[in-house]
Simulated scan of single mutants.
Amino acid sequence: MRLIENVYQTSGVMYGTNSSTYCIDTGEGLVLIDAGFSEKQYEIMRTRRKEDGLGNKKLRDLFITHGHFDHAGNGWLLQKDGVKVYMSAEDGAAVKSGDERTLGSLFGRKFRAFTPDGKVRDGQTFDYGNTQLTVLEHPGHTEGTISILAETNGKKILFAGDIFVLKACNPADELQPEIGWTGGPDYNGTKNLETFRKLKELPPVDLVAPGHGSVYFGDSRKLFEILYHLAEKEAQQ
């Protein structure tokens, strides 16, 4: 589904999958954000690209926001397609070993370990034709969680992984975001709070694209302010 020019959602609730994945048509190949969980989701992602007119375009790079199964599980399949996979050093080590940090036991199957092609760091940029990507280190949900800030066709998009989830608004049409899952073996509450402070200070973006739930076209500053206060309350508990 086309979200804005050059940016597509290729899996998520609307397509019958738990996690969301995204695709950017850079004019120099397709750049993917997150890999999804299962072979079923892999096929849905491929079908969606075809339906959106991207089926004949070259798959170039994949950025995985963190090493949990539902976001990194298909990394090995996409590598077989010739895609180069980029992750943080910390979560890259998790998927290389396939250890408990990937949450295989939670998903009821063994994680298929793979070695990312490159390690990324905070502030690192990637230029692709009509698109520039910037890596933002946002640890807490996992030790090496990253977000990807994309700029394309004059618009800014934040691909935020599992830092937070956007639920349906309440009957008063008020935002109902929630902090991402805090039960992982390498969750760090102190770092998570710092991540939300960084989000609160981020310049406005046109589209927020989390790893679960809904995307958001509204006022990103308002959303991040709400999330920061939620993170503060959680840190005080």
Rank of each mutant, 00 (worst) to 15 (best):
L3E: 12
V7T: 09
Y8R: 00
Q9H: 06
T10Y: 01
Y15W: 14
Y22C: 06
C23M: 07
C23L: 08
I24L: 15
L30G: 01
L30W: 03
L32F: 05
D34N: 15
E39C: 00
M45G: 03
M45K: 07
T47K: 15
R48F: 01
R48S: 13
E51N: 12
N56A: 11
R60W: 07
I64G: 01
T65K: 05
T65S: 15
H68E: 13
D70V: 07
A72S: 15
G73V: 01
G75Y: 01
L78C: 01
L78T: 05
D81I: 08
D81A: 11
V85I: 11
Y86L: 11
M87Q: 03
S88T: 09
G92L: 03
V95S: 00
D99S: 11
E100R: 14
T102P: 04
T102L: 03
L103C: 10
S105D: 15
L106C: 08
F111V: 03
F111W: 01
F114G: 03
P116L: 09
D117P: 05
V120G: 02
R121H: 13
D122E: 15
T125H: 08
Y128H: 13
G129W: 03
N130E: 13
T131D: 06
T134Q: 14
T134H: 02
T134P: 00
V135E: 06
H138I: 12
P139Q: 06
G140T: 05
S147K: 01
A150N: 06
E151F: 09
G154K: 08
G154V: 06
K156E: 09
K156N: 03
A160W: 02
G161V: 04
G161L: 05
F164N: 01
L166W: 01
N170E: 06
Q176Y: 09
I179W: 02
I179T: 04
G180I: 03
G180N: 07
W181P: 00
G183W: 10
G184N: 03
G184E: 02
P185R: 11
D186Y: 09
D186L: 08
Y187W: 14
G189P: 05
T190K: 14
T195L: 06
F196I: 07
R197M: 11
K200Q: 14
E201K: 14
L202M: 14
P204C: 00
D206H: 12
D206S: 09
G211P: 00
S214W: 11
Y216E: 03
F217A: 11
F217Q: 09
D219K: 08
R221G: 14
R221I: 07
L223F: 09
L223Q: 04
E225T: 15
L227S: 02
L227R: 04
H229E: 14
A235I: 08
Q236V: 10
Q237M: 12
Q237R: 14
